[in-house]
């Protein structure tokens, strides 16, 4: 008996000890030869395995760009599907190197949960979806409604605040994953489904009858979504941040996956393009990578605009407009610090 207890204790200790190695994520990733990327368990347009079991989507493209910059191959990514409940524990325990999972940048997550948000890849806000035949045209008419929510998200808190500040009552139906919430909503077990507007659009696009569902006009919160890493490894945080910035800068500078080869070979009159593509200066070495890091990151899935357009843009079933996510030069919020 004592033997068993001792062995059990040792096994438990080995598990608890697994997350110990902390610094130098870059070396870990290079030695391992693949990037462990935490993603959604399945959200159309953002992260989902396609018919050939290859992960596709907006968030997935970020994982691929980071893997391309660090390892030279966009396919060297180990996708770890995480629920909203398990994502932070997985990142804190070192199970994933980076979390790109429609995660809202908040004070508590940044400061108290000890994470570093590297960038904002999608400016979002929480909205409500109802069936058309409910006859509701504003979220202010939802008094007494049953509301399906994905539990463990900021939506839960925004929802409580919204209904309380408007003096309305509601009945929350907490659900663990987006897929299960979808089922409950479609079965009519709740009147309303709430999550970020991008998630609502993605969810609605996967319905058999998207035209019978309407997203209400109210957006009740700010949800800046972006990739995040653990506190304490600034080099790794810098890599994730500047890969994201490179994608936005590429769109701003007119670098696309189509012309990047030519620009890399022949150069460009704008020195910032040359610095970004490693023809001038040694930005790559400062990050601990080689000179071609940004070329590979941009070639992986294109620049920010291309990633947006192929995965969730107006030409896709998700059909999201650029809106706040247009470049700053076009009235949006996507803006990158200079590459110099």
């Amino acid at each position: 008996m004592t033997h068993k207890i001792l062995l059990g204790a040792l096994a438990a200790a080995a598990i608890l000890g697994a997350g110990a190695a902390q610094a130098q994520t870059l070396n870990d990733v290079k030695n391992r030869g693949n990037l462990r990327c935490g993603t959604n368990t399945g959200l159309a347009g953002f992260a989902f395995p396609d018919a050939n079991n290859v992960w596709q989507g907006f968030d997935v493209a970020y994982c691929r760009a980071i893997a391309a910059a660090v390892l030279g191959d966009p396919m060297k990514v180990d996708f770890v599907p995480l629920t909203s409940q398990t994502r932070f524990t997985a990142l804190a325990a070192g199970e994933v190197d980076v979390l790109v999972r429609n995660t809202t940048w908040t004070f508590v997550r940044d400061v108290d949960l000890k994470f570093t948000f590297a960038a904002v890849n999608y400016y979002d806000g929480q909205g409500f979806m109802v069936r058309k035949d409910l006859g509701v045209s504003s979220a202010k008419e939802l008094d007494g409604a049953k509301v399906c929510i994905e539990t463990g998200t900021t939506t839960e808190l925004n929802l409580a605040d919204f209904f309380r500040s408007n003096g309305m009552s509601y009945d929350p139906v907490p659900i663990e994953t987006n897929a299960a919430a979808q089922q409950q909503y479609l079965a009519g077990a709740c009147d309303v489904y709430t999550t970020d507007v991008s998630g609502l659009a993605a969810t609605r696009a996967s319905f058999a009858d998207p035209q019978n569902h309407v997203i209400l006009p109210e957006v009740v919160s700010k949800e800046p979504l972006g990739p995040l890493v653990r506190h304490g490894d600034d080099q790794w945080a810098d890599i994730v941040r500047w890969v994201s910035n490179a994608l936005v800068a590429a769109e701003e500078l007119g670098i696309t996956s189509a012309n990047i080869g030519e620009l890399k070979a022949n150069g460009h009159p704008n020195p910032e393009v040359n610095r970004l593509l490693g023809r001038e200066g040694d930005l790559g070495a400062m990050l601990g990578l080689d000179a071609n890091w940004a070329v590979r990151a941009i070639s992986a899935a294109g620049n920010y605009g291309e990633i947006f357009a192929t995965n969730i843009g107006e030409g896709t079933p998700i059909g999201l407009a650029r809106g706040l996510n247009a470049l700053w030069t076009q009235g949006g919020l996507q803006y990158t610090p200079p590459f110099r």
Partner: peptide
């Protein structure tokens, strides 16, 4: 057994400290 437990607790404290 007690040494094992002590190691577990110590390890946890260290890991928490490493995570800040």
């Amino acid at each position: 057994l007690m040494a094992g437990f002590a190691w577990l607790v110590d390890n946890t404290i260290q890991n928490l400290r490493a995570l800040g």
